[in-house]
Amino acid sequence: MLEPFQYSFFVNGSIAAVVVGALCGLIGVYVVLRGMSYIGHGLSHAIFGGAVVSYVMAWNFYLGAGLWGFLAALLINQTARRARIGADAAIGVVTTASFAIGIALISKFRKFSRNFDAALFGNILGVDTVDVLVISGIAILIMIVVFVAYKRLLFTAFDSDVARVYGVRTEWVEVLFALALAATLIASMQILGVTLIAAALVVPAITARLLTDSFNRMVAYSMMIGALTGLAGMYVSFYADVASGATIVLIQAFCFVVALTIGAVRRSNERRLAHTHV
């Protein structure tokens, strides 16, 4: 049972997977409730472009990709507002253009293309102690931001227009959330890869939503599902010799199916009870 923990790569990877799972679970609640599932998918692709540019320009990966992701999030917001096109179309334009920049740069400098396999598909085995510290630092910072702005984030997610009338500075809440989302994606990129981050953001949150009607409990459940599936995914991937990012997402998808089934059975029982009482 404890055999994998003899290996430092497994210990580092497990800590990173648990932290990233809980973080994606937390931010995913807001992403799902605001109907922004597509933005997680799009932004992770945009950040990939930023990661390649950071490499070419010899910038720090976390700072370069983070800034790029944050600017992409703001650009999507502004494009959707000013050009009067839907947010989904704005996400499509901005993020695929950014992703294309990354691909173009890789094709131009083919020699370093292998380094970006991790960014695309995740490479949890490559996580070292410094990465764990950086990821944990980002996660703690984001959790503090969410803790402090909890009520403002909740009202803005529920109804942004009404929240503004009630004196909530929704424009600042939006900026704060864009920053938190971009930072979450950066922290998750090495673990899950661009292609799987969206699932890790969305699946724990919608699974939690199926289990409760309370916002506070949804946040707690989503974080727990993210963290536990992170650990379980590491274990299964170790013994089954399958890519860890994909294993984590597959276990999350399994949890979703279980929650969906529990929800369907519960609703069916409620209907039967209601029918009996009539």
Partner: peptide, 10 residues
Amino acid sequence: PVTVDQAVLM
């Protein structure tokens, strides 16, 4: 996912 008290406290 909000209950009556959570909605009112907003």
